[in-house]
C-alpha cells in the first residue's frame, strides 16, 4: 500500500471541505439564528434571545392557514403519488411491456425539464380549458414533480429484491394480485416509504410551480414566505422557515433510517 497523500494536501482538503460545508449550511443556520431574536428587525447575530416570533406565527392566521394548505396538499400528493408511482415502478421493473424504456424516460422527464415550463404550461392550459387555477392545480403540479422520485426509490429497492419470490408465490397457487400484494409490495416497502417522504418534502417545499399558479386563494407556506420576502420581511419569516427546516431534518432522518441516504444516491 502506498502512502495516501502528502500532509499539505490533506490540510488543504480539510480546509476546502469545511469551507464548502459551511457555505452549504450557513443560510440555514442564519435563518434559525434570526428566528430566536428578541428584536423587531431581521438581524444576525440576533439581538437577545426570545421565542416571541414563534408565538407570533402560531397566533397569526396567515401562517396557520397557509401551513394547513401546504400540509393538506402535501398529504394528498404523498398518498396519490406513492400509490400510483409504486404501481408504475413495479410494472417498469418487470420489463414485460413494450417500450418500457420510453415510458420510464417519460416518467423521469419532469426531473430534467425545468419546472418553470411545467408551471407555465399548467397555468395557461388550466386557465384556458378548465378555468381559474385552484389548489387542485397546485396538487396536480406537485404530483407530477413528486412521481418520478417515488418511482426512482421504489425501483432502487426492487433491483436488489429476489425476483423468484413472486414466482414461488405463483407456483404455490397465489393469484397475480395476491402475489403482488403479499410478496412484491412488502419487498419494496422501504423504497415506497422513502418515496413517500420525498413526495411529501417536494410538495411541502415547492415554490416554482405554485408561484405561477399564485392567487389569493392559493397560499402555500413557501408562497407566503416568498410574498413576505418581496415586501416586508420581519423575523416571523425566520421562525416559519426554521420550522420548515426542522421538518426537513425529520424527513431526512426518516429516509436515512428506512433505506439509507447512501442507497438513494447510488
Amino acid at each position: 500500500m502506498v502512502d495516501h497523500s502528502p500532509l499539505w494536501l490533506r490540510l488543504v482538503t480539510a480546509c476546502l471541505t469545511s469551507t464548502i460545508v459551511i457555505f452549504l449550511i450557513a443560510p440555514l443556520l442564519i435563518v434559525v439564528g434570526v428566528s430566536f431574536t428578541a428584536g423587531d428587525y431581521i438581524a444576525f447575530p440576533p439581538q437577545g434571545l426570545s421565542l416571541r416570533w414563534y408565538a407570533k406565527i402560531l397566533s397569526e392566521q396567515v401562517y396557520t392557514s397557509s401551513f394547513a394548505m401546504s400540509l393538506w396538499v402535501a398529504c394528498l400528493v404523498t398518498v396519490s403519488a406513492t400509490a400510483i408511482g409504486t404501481a408504475a415502478a413495479i410494472a417498469l421493473h418487470r420489463e414485460v411491456l413494450p417500450g418500457s424504456r420510453a415510458i420510464s424516460g417519460f416518467f423521469f422527464a419532469p426531473i430534467i425539464l425545468p419546472s418553470i415550463i411545467l408551471g407555465l404550461g399548467l397555468l395557461i392550459v388550466w386557465s384556458r380549458v378548465i378555468g381559474a387555477t385552484s389548489v387542485l392545480t397546485v396538487f396536480v403540479g406537485h404530483f407530477v414533480l413528486a412521481l418520478p422520485y417515488v418511482i426512482r426509490t421504489t425501483l432502487a429497492v426492487l433491483t436488489t429484491s429476489d425476483p423468484f419470490l413472486e414466482e414461488a408465490a405463483r407456483t404455490m397457487g397465489a393469484g397475480p394480485w395476491q402475489s403482488l400484494w403479499r410478496v412484491t409490495v412488502p419487498q419494496c416497502a422501504p423504497g415506497i416509504a422513502a418515496g413517500a417522504f420525498f413526495a411529501f418534502n417536494i410538495s411541502f417545499d415547492e415554490a416554482v410551480v405554485s408561484l405561477f399558479l399564485r392567487s389569493p386563494d392559493i397560499m402555500t407556506l413557501p408562497i407566503q414566505i416568498y410574498t413576505q420576502l418581496e415586501f416586508s420581511p420581519d423575523p416571523s419569516i425566520a421562525a416559519v422557515s426554521s420550522l420548515m427546516i426542522g421538518l426537513t431534518i425529520v424527513l431526512i432522518v426518516l429516509i436515512e433510517r428506512v433505506v439509507g441516504l447512501q442507497k438513494i444516491t447510488e
Partner: peptide, 14 residues
C-alpha cells in the same frame, strides 16, 4: 431538501 425560498431568505440576511 430545504425549500428554495428558505435558503434564499438566508442569503438575503447574509
Amino acid at each position: 431538501m430545504t425549500s428554495v425560498v428558505v435558503r434564499t431568505f438566508g442569503w438575503m440576511v447574509i
